[in-house]
Computed example of a mutant assay.
Amino acid sequence: MAARLLQHVLDEAQQRGYQRLSLETGSQPFFAPAHQLYTRFGFQLCGPFDSYNEDPNSIFMTRNF
């Protein structure tokens, strides 16, 4: 179900002409399945964006279209 929802978000972003999607998620071990899902869909690690600051509890990822 998570993969289908993420694919829907990606399809919608692409249809709207977005050039990039970025996300912030937790860094704790229980987030590992989410990190794997995002990686499978082309997201790569990046630095903080927008008003985020570097935080040991956060992982930042981005995907270009």
Rank of each mutant, 00 (worst) to 15 (best):
F49C: 12
Q28V: 14
L37S: 04
M61S: 01
G47P: 00
H8Y: 05
F43P: 02
V9P: 01
A3H: 13
P56G: 00
F49L: 15
F65C: 01
G42E: 03
N64C: 13
F65I: 00
F60A: 04
R40N: 13
Y52F: 14
D11R: 04
G17Q: 03
Y38I: 06
V9Q: 09
Q28K: 15
Q36M: 09
E12K: 12
S58V: 03
R63M: 05
E12M: 04
L23K: 03
N57G: 10
F60C: 08
M61A: 12
G42C: 14
P29S: 15
F30H: 10
D50N: 06
E12R: 10
L21Q: 13
Q14E: 06
F65W: 12
I59N: 02
R40C: 06
E24T: 12
E54T: 10
N57T: 08
M1K: 08
R16W: 05
C46P: 00
C46Y: 02
M1I: 14
R40S: 13
F49V: 06
A3G: 11
Y52E: 09
A2L: 11
P48Q: 04
R20M: 09
M61E: 06
T62A: 07
E24Y: 00
I59S: 02
L45E: 07
F31W: 13
G17F: 08
D55V: 12
Y38L: 14
S51F: 10
Q19S: 10
R16T: 02
S27I: 05
L23S: 04
G17S: 09
R20A: 11
E54V: 05
Y18T: 01
I59R: 05
M61W: 01
S27T: 15
F60W: 03
S22I: 11
D50F: 12
Q7W: 02
R4M: 11
G17V: 08
L37H: 09
Q7N: 11
L10D: 15
P48V: 11
A2N: 03
F43I: 08
D11F: 00
A3E: 13
T25M: 14
H8A: 11
T39L: 07
L37R: 07
L37A: 07
S22K: 05
F43K: 05
D50S: 04
L23F: 00
L6A: 05
Y18E: 14
S58M: 02
M61R: 03
M61Q: 06
L5A: 07
Q28N: 08
N53C: 03
E12T: 08
P48I: 14
R16N: 06
Y38G: 02
F65Y: 10
L37V: 09
L23W: 00
G47D: 04
T39N: 14
G47L: 02
L5P: 01
Y38V: 15
G26R: 00
P56D: 13
F31C: 06
L45M: 05
N64L: 15
H35G: 04
N53H: 06
G47Q: 11
H35Y: 04
S22M: 08
